[in-house]
Simulated scan of single mutants.
Amino acid sequence: MLIISPIPAFNDNYIWMFHSPDSRDVFVVDPGDARPVEQILNRHDLNLAGILITHHHFDHTGGITELTSNRNIPVYGPDNQKITGITHPVRDHDTVELSACQFQILSTPGHTLDHIAYFTDSGEDKKPALFCGDTLFVGGCGRLFEGTAEQMYSSLLRLASLPDNTRIYCAHEYTQANLTFARAVEPNNQKLQEQVMLVAGLRSENRPTVPSTLRKELDTNPFLRSDQPEVIQAACDRDPSSSASPIDVLRVIRAWKDNF
């Protein structure tokens, strides 16, 4: 079991911190900025025991050098020379034990080619937890900066196969914008309407909308619903040349979202 907390960074990033309830040794995921991490460590008298990286973008890696300058700690991440400071490269299907929990490494290309996610079946409250970086967001998915729609579809399909009660710890507070787009794609989705109202209440109080659950994303996130009739119809209306296959639907709605 873990205690998992968000550390806000930049305008909308979340650096995730986790540790065992009986330990002051913590791990952080995607520290793009060292300063807020150091502030939390000092405020709560915690010890940084390691770092997890999901992909090479600087807003996820920028704090590695400073956080490790005076610490001899492991840095787990993709086997990518673009990332300075990785001490423990990990690959698809690898497992690592952190804070007495076993994490499985999942390759999730699409947003970037090197993207990975970390999954454990014993996260907070003993519920499954997924640190998915920028592959899957609440109500959305990452832009296709390096990968293809086919790669992203395969990655999302893989995440969709995890247990329904998996908590989704993504790296950005993009939820309101994502759900505004989701409503354009699927205006008749009642569960989506309920999610919009819930998120509006949270953000009005400046509270995080993350984590979500996989079940909620399967019900409301159009990028996990590219095989659903209303999503298919929206994609075909947007691009009449679409083949209506799930991969092509994802391609169309991702391009639509890019310019929404």
Score class of each variant (00 low, 15 high):
residue 239 D to F: 11
residue 35 R to N: 04
residue 223 F to E: 00
residue 204 S to W: 05
residue 142 G to L: 12
residue 243 S to P: 01
residue 241 S to R: 13
residue 257 K to Y: 11
residue 256 W to G: 06
residue 234 A to E: 04
residue 208 P to T: 09
residue 71 R to S: 04
residue 172 H to S: 13
residue 254 R to E: 05
residue 190 Q to V: 15
residue 177 A to D: 09
residue 79 D to F: 01
residue 60 H to I: 04
residue 104 Q to W: 03
residue 71 R to C: 03
residue 182 A to V: 07
residue 2 L to N: 03
residue 155 S to V: 06
residue 172 H to V: 13
residue 235 A to C: 05
residue 146 E to A: 12
residue 16 W to R: 06
residue 121 D to L: 04
residue 110 G to N: 08
residue 153 Y to Q: 10
residue 223 F to P: 00
residue 12 D to G: 08
residue 172 H to I: 13
residue 247 I to Q: 14
residue 30 D to M: 05
residue 182 A to T: 09
residue 195 Q to H: 12
residue 157 L to A: 12
residue 59 D to A: 10
residue 49 A to C: 01
residue 64 I to T: 04
residue 125 D to R: 15
residue 130 L to E: 01
residue 146 E to T: 02
residue 9 A to V: 10
residue 57 H to M: 11
residue 72 N to E: 13
residue 202 L to E: 09
residue 111 H to C: 02
residue 254 R to V: 15
residue 122 S to F: 06
residue 39 Q to A: 11
residue 224 L to E: 07
residue 117 A to F: 03
residue 20 S to T: 14
residue 203 R to Y: 12
residue 182 A to W: 01
residue 110 G to Y: 05
residue 35 R to A: 07
residue 249 V to T: 08
residue 112 T to Q: 09
residue 65 T to N: 04
residue 85 G to S: 10
residue 78 P to N: 13
residue 238 R to L: 11
residue 78 P to G: 04
residue 135 T to K: 13
